[in-house]
Design a protein around this nucleic acid. Structure first.
Length: 421
RNA sequence: GUGGGUGUAGCUCAGUUUGGUAGAGCGCCAGAUUGUGGCUCUGGUGGCCGUGGGUUCAAGUCCCAUCACUCACCCCA
């Protein structure tokens, strides 16, 4: 016997029973996005490696160790996308979306790839849906974007299980000032810090605040706070965002250690976390990235966005028993006797065209077995087309809910099933 | 890349201590007199006990190796 071929580590088959939950979630996402005038954008699964190197940052974990990269036959370095903000921005620039309207509002949903060790809520191929609002620097845009996710959570009935953590990393000038202050603070104890933090001391000292190393944590507990070094305009922006969130009654927690792993963030940085998720507790992350578009060769265009892990959101829904997979058939057509099968073939097509979800027996099994199958599929009605019914040009219509059954014309049965009788 | 845990039926798991003919529940299939679901009852299908070595008269059980899955670290959605 040949070996069975298995899934690649960290990937998942989303099977019947699961896909219904995904689709229900996707419907909510689409509805909320449409209401808020966000349009869907679809970009390629792979991009030039350079896009992520420049867009996400060479020093980030994503780029330095997690990318699926390879050379194609022309020698171009290709990478399976590990995140979607950079590709969306690339597309925005390449297609000159700036020329179409001053504000671009887009959303997406699709697979991403990162070669990490899998664990709960973390996979090598995983899905994110997200939104990007490009072209406005104003705080109400931050709140429009964050509020969009809040609407999805509310619509799903899980906003209580999720906490919004927010911080401001300021504009470039504020951050430069703070970086100096932070370095001065940390320098005396630099030798005692974790290896990665020592490395980041030069490259990206802000990330040290994010460290989970207990020693680092103790050391940074009394570190000066970034919020205290925001310049006036940065501070005004941040205050304004917080006020608007309050006026929308979106609860938040300020978290002055929240820095986030990607290089491109400016001003607002935020994260939605949930304690039902285990160690990987972030269900959504995002922030403002006013410098990224220019960095990738576009204009000086401000933007803000977020991305939510689809599997993680489904885990939250599962934990709160808010995910729905129940599907029901309108009609199961049962056929006791193979002579009726040709008639059944045309009947079922007609009913399907009329908009009913219908199924029938493909195993040539007994009527009893067909009834069991109808029940298993949660059918509202069973139509029985037997020998005597076929002769009369009629069918038996049975309500699986009440158990009531009667013989009637085919037309009458269709009307009943459509709810028109 | 590092550490812990787990691999026995489609699924959830007993059985491993003390080696002696492979188990349960759920699911699936079929039956309980006529062409009728759910509830109940009865029967059935289904496993090279992750894989390869070793010890032994005898290994799911003991030893070694290996692979897979899983959780956690790092980091992230």
């Amino acid at each position: 016997m040949p070996d069975k071929i298995q899934r690649i580590k960290g990937t998942n088959d989303i099977l019947p029973g699961e896909t219904e939950k995904w689709q229900a979630l996707e419907r909510v996402i689409q509805t909320v996005m449409m209401r808020s005038a966000y349009s869907e954008i679809r970009t390629p699964i792979f991009e030039k490696t350079e896009l992520f190197a420049r867009g996400v940052g060479e020093d980030t974990d994503i780029v330095s160790k997690e990318m699926y990269s390879f050379e194609d036959k022309g020698g171009t370095s290709i990478t399976l996308r590990p995140e979607l903000t950079a590709p969306v921005v690339r597309s925005y620039i390449q297609n000159n979306l700036q020329q179409i309207a001053p504000t671009t509002k887009v959303w997406y949903h699709g697979p991403l790839f990162r070669q990490e060790r899998p664990q709960k809520g973390r996979y090598r191929q995983f899905y994110q849906f997200g939104a990007e609002t490009i072209g406005s620097p104003f705080p109400e845009t931050d709140v429009e974007t964050i509020g969009l996710y809040w609407e999805i959570l509310t619509e799903l009935g899980i906003s209580d299980a999720v906490v919004l953590k927010i911080n401001s990393v300021g504009d470039e000038a504020s951050r430069e000032t703070y970086r100096q202050v932070l370095r001065e603070f940390l320098r005396p104890n630099l030798g005692e810090m974790s290896e990665t933090s020592q490395r980041r001391f030069e490259t990206n000292p802000l990330r040290i605040l994010d460290s989970k190393d207990p020693g680092d944590k103790a050391m940074t507990d009394h570190a000066p706070k970034l919020v205290d070094y925001l310049n006036e305009s940065s501070e005004r922006h941040y205050k304004s965002v917080l006020e608007l969130l309050s006026s929308l009654e979106i609860p938040y927690e300020q978290d002055d250690r929240l820095v986030r792993g990607l290089d491109y963030y400016t001003h607002t940085a935020f994260e939605f976390t949930s304690d039902v998720l285990g160690a990987q507790d972030a269900v959504c992350g995002g922030g403002r990235y006013d410098g990224l578009i220019e960095e990738l060769g576009g204009g000086k265009v401000p933007a803000i966005g977020w991305a939510s892990g689809t599997e993680r959101l489904l885990l939250v829904m599962e934990a709160l028993e808010k995910s729905q997979s129940l599907t029901g058939l309108d009609c199961y057509l049962a056929i006791p006797g193979d002579e009726q099968r040709p008639t059944a073939t045309t009947l079922i097509r007609e009913w399907r065209r009329a908009g009913l979800s219908c199924d029938t027996d493909l195993q040539r099994r007994s009527l009893k077995a067909q009834m069991r199958e109808a029940n298993r599929q949660n059918a509202r009605f069973v139509v029985i087309l037997g020998e005597s019914e076929r002769k009369n040009g009629s069918v038996q219509l049975k309500s699986m809910e009440t158990g009531a059954q009667s013989e009637m014309s085919i037309a009458a049965a269709l009307k009943m099933m459509l709810g028109q009788a």
